[in-house]
Amino acid sequence: MKIQDEHLYHGAALIQIAEDHRFTAINGLKVGAKVVNSAYKVNDSIAVYFKYAVNPHGKYKEYVFTFKSDQIQQIRKIATAHESTYIALVCVGAREVCTISADQLADLIAARQKANGGQEDQYTLLVTADPGKSLRAYVNQPGKKATILGKPLVVGRNAFPNSLFG
């Protein structure tokens, strides 16, 4: 089987989970009868959905994570079935994993929908990993570049994988 980029980048984060003393098992995760390629069940009750971005972009050096409608629906279904559901945003160039909960992702999307006056086909989550600072995850104001909507989520660089087991 050929190794895909996602195997490399998700695998780097999965190793960190497996090395944690609270780790016991990891399995593929299903939504209904379908296996979700980018999600895993950790231990008995933790669901983790992975996304990766290789390099930061633009003036603000943001890692760009795009969530299409079908991915958002998958995450919602996963969160319904698993009380502890997280999104692991692998920032490859920074060699960091920014972890947010499914509820935090839903809040960011809801704020964007409210500001936009309705749903969009996809949502872009941005993460910055400035040296010496915590990670920041946010969405921008609709129609305004470089304007953060609300307050960014501040995520400690050492939060992953601890936040999954907390």
Rank of each mutant, 00 (worst) to 15 (best):
Y60A: 15
V48E: 08
F165G: 12
K133H: 14
K41Q: 15
A79S: 12
V42I: 15
T85F: 01
E19V: 09
E120T: 10
A129S: 12
P142G: 05
N43W: 07
K59Y: 13
P152C: 02
I148P: 04
D5C: 10
F50I: 14
A79V: 04
V64F: 11
V64W: 13
Y123C: 03
A18M: 15
V154H: 10
Y63D: 05
V139F: 01
L126T: 07
S45K: 14
A102Y: 01
I148R: 14
Y86H: 13
E96W: 04
D107F: 00
E83P: 06
K51A: 02
K68L: 09
K68F: 12
T99H: 07
F23T: 10
K2P: 06
T99Y: 05
Q4N: 10
L108S: 00
L126M: 12
I17Q: 07
Y138E: 01
K59F: 12
K77C: 03
P142H: 05
A115V: 00
I148Q: 07
G143P: 00
G150E: 05
P131H: 08
V42A: 09
D44C: 04
N140K: 13
Y123T: 01
S163A: 15
R136K: 15
Q104C: 05
F65D: 02
D5A: 13
A13N: 06
S84F: 10
L108V: 00
I75C: 08
A115I: 00
V64G: 01
L8S: 08
C98G: 12
G58C: 11
H57R: 15
D20N: 15
V48W: 07
A106C: 00
G28A: 13
A79H: 08
P56T: 07
E19C: 12
V90H: 12
H7L: 08
F165H: 11
D130H: 14
I87T: 07
Y49K: 08
V31G: 05
F67H: 01
P142E: 04
V127W: 03
R22H: 15
E19W: 11
I100V: 11
K68G: 11
A39Y: 01
G143S: 07
L105S: 03
E83I: 09
D70Y: 13
E83G: 10
K68Q: 14
E96L: 11
A12H: 09
Q74S: 08
G58R: 11
L8E: 08
I26T: 08
Q122L: 11
Q73W: 04
G11F: 06
K151N: 09
A53N: 09
S163K: 15
G93M: 00
N43G: 10
D107K: 11
A94D: 01
